[in-house]
Write a protein that binds this DNA or RNA. Structure first.
Length: 500
RNA sequence: GGUUUCAUGGCCGAGUGGCUAGGCAGAGCUCUGCAAAAGCUCCUACAGCGGUUCGAAUCCGCUUGAAACCUCCA
């Protein structure tokens, strides 16, 4: 494992802390996944991409990371407090589908987008409905410890009781009294002893689609409970990193803290990481705000705010150019600039790989201390960026500085003969591994191969016309070797897949 | 109303008590059949007003503006 002073900003302490895993080299990381009742929008994508970088960099440093990201497929309610309808149940009724059809549809869509963005799949992707038994057990445990109470078939967490012994609000920085003062009146909270209490288990009305048997009657789990249960199950009572969007800090994550302490007496999470929001025209993108841009809309350019399509990797590069804890504003100008930057980086990747592949043909200089130091400093800057709370913007700046060297060698504006082998190797290896493995950027390739093929067919036609049969045969042979046969037809020249 | 965060050059966007961020755009040069790419050079900012300091864009205060959370949202 490389020696690094990785620092990350812990929401819990509001400070950058040195990352020290509980049981190195193992790292447990839990990220709150999507509620699969509609398509993920760009804001959701940003969060998951940010944590993909965390996962990738920790892995790059040699840690063995178990990355758990859940799918919320029940319990997340529409509207205020704990009286709304289940989001998935509502959508199911609306579209006359089984709730699990809704869940499957949007889970598939979510996975597809994650692949487009080249996000690594988590090690475990548990679902809330798959852990009802565990949620019942944890609810019972919390009741046993005196922090939960049953009311009318529902179970609530007793925040006031909890606050007598522990600090409720420590994660989000809220003071309970102020919280109460700022709250507005909500309907249907008579079951609760206090307004700040939250549901662990909800009694299901007869019309409710998603329901399970419980010691307190038919019902369904509260939203906050699943994350506590599943993180505990797969990462243990205490684990390293818990991540999510800033909007989940309160109440979701605050409730998670309370649930873990309420059930097991210990706080589960060592480092809380929160990503900032994505904004459109300065306003936060949110499903409830109604200003969502869907990934597919961005990729096709089919959206009123977009002047052109932007590819998945353009989006990824754009995201990585800002720090995850800052807000990120979507604009056409910024996306266009990102597109060019991304392509520059990819051209560099191509050049670096070419140089690497051809290295046997080069003659290198003997050791050059000055150059060696210079290259090492450039590389160190890239690592310093990532070590400083996953500052991908800083790392990218460093990579562009490496790229200058690579391009200089590639175009032979500086001869390789002045370079020593070691500097050459580390330069290329660092650039390639950072771009591909740490940042997760990949070449998107040519999107319109048919057009490229037409250029070739044009050359073929021309050669034929000029009776340059040597050239004609050459084109035929080389295209055939790629699985394409050129067809001379009465109507013109075309091509077909070689059926051999 | 409460809590918190932020304000950087034409645009996006890092960062830091004294040392070039980087990308995009623009100007010039090198290279080049033309062009592109690439490299080099230039453009070099830190909301306003005070204070601390040898020195602040960076720390403190005030003013102005913006956003987020306090209610479901990544």
């Amino acid at each position: 494992m490389k020696k690094h002073q990785l620092k990350l900003y812990n929401t819990l302490t509001r400070a950058k802390e040195l990352f020290e895993p509980l049981k190195p080299p193992y790292v447990g990381m839990y990220v709150c996944g999507p509620t699969v009742y509609s398509d993920v929008h760009l804001g959701n994508c940003r969060t998951f991409t940010s944590f993909d970088i965390v996962y990738r960099y920790l892995t790059h440093l040699g840690y063995k990371v178990r990355y758990v990201r859940n799918i919320t497929d029940v319990g997340h309610l529409v509207g205020d407090a704990d009286e709304g309808e289940d989001k998935i149940g509502k959508k199911a009724k609306l579209e006359n589908l089984e709730p699990m059809e809704i869940v499957q549809r949007y889970t598939n869509g979510f996975h597809f987008v994650m692949q487009q963005l080249n996000n690594t799949p988590p090690s475990i992707e548990p679902t809330a409905t798959g852990h009802i038994v565990e949620q019942l057990e944890m609810t019972q445990q919390i009741i046993n410890n005196g922090y939960g109470y049953v009311a009318n078939g529902s179970v609530y967490f007793d925040v006031k009781k909890y606050a007598e012994k522990y600090e409720y609000g420590k994660l989000s920085g809220r003071v309970l009294d102020e919280l109460l003062a700022g709250q507005r009146e909500l309907d249907g909270q008579e079951e609760k002893r206090n307004k700040e209490d939250f549901a662990l288990w909800k009694n299901a009305l007869p019309t409710h689609l998603m329901r399970w048997k419980s010691p307190w009657g038919d019902g369904f789990p509260g939203w906050h409970l699943e994350c506590s249960v599943m993180s505990m199950k797969y990462l243990g009572e205490r684990f390293d990193i818990h991540g999510g969007g800033m909007d989940l800090k309160f109440p979701h994550h605050e409730c998670e803290v309370a649930q873990s302490v309420g059930a097991y007496g210990t706080e589960a999470v060592k480092y809380w990481l929160h990503t900032n929001m994505l904004t459109v025209n300065g306003q936060r993108m949110g499903k409830s705000v109604g200003n969502s841009i869907l990934p597919a809309e961005l990729f096709t350019g089919n959206h009123a705010l977009l002047e052109q399509p932007y590819s998945p990797m353009t989006l990824r590069f754009f995201m990585l150019q800002t720090h995850y804890r800052g807000t990120m504003d979507i604009t056409n100008d910024a996306l266009k600039a990102a597109q060019k930057g991304y392509l520059k980086m990819m051209n560099g990747l191509k050049n670096a790989k070419e140089l690497q592949a051809n290295q046997a043909t080069f003659t290198f200089a003997t050791s050059d201390d000055k150059l060696k130091t210079e290259v090492q400093e450039l590389i160190a800057a890239v690592y310093e960026g990532m070590d400083d709370d996953f500052n991908t913007a800083m790392a990218i700046a460093g990579l562009f500085n490496l790229l200058k060297k690579i391009n200089t060698l590639h175009t032979q504006q500086q001869t390789i003969a002045t370079w020593d082998k070691e500097s050459f190797d580390t330069l290329l290896a660092t650039y390639i591994s950072f771009v591909e493995d740490v940042l997760g950027l990949r070449e998107e390739g040519l999107t319109d191969l048919a057009a490229v093929l037409n250029v070739l067919l044009g050359l073929y036609q021309e050669a034929k016309h000029n009776k340059n049969y040597e050239q004609v045969d050459k084109l035929r042979t080389s295209m055939k070797s790629l699985g394409i046969v050129v067809k001379d037809m009465k109507t013109g020249i075309g091509w077909a897949y070689d059926e051999v």
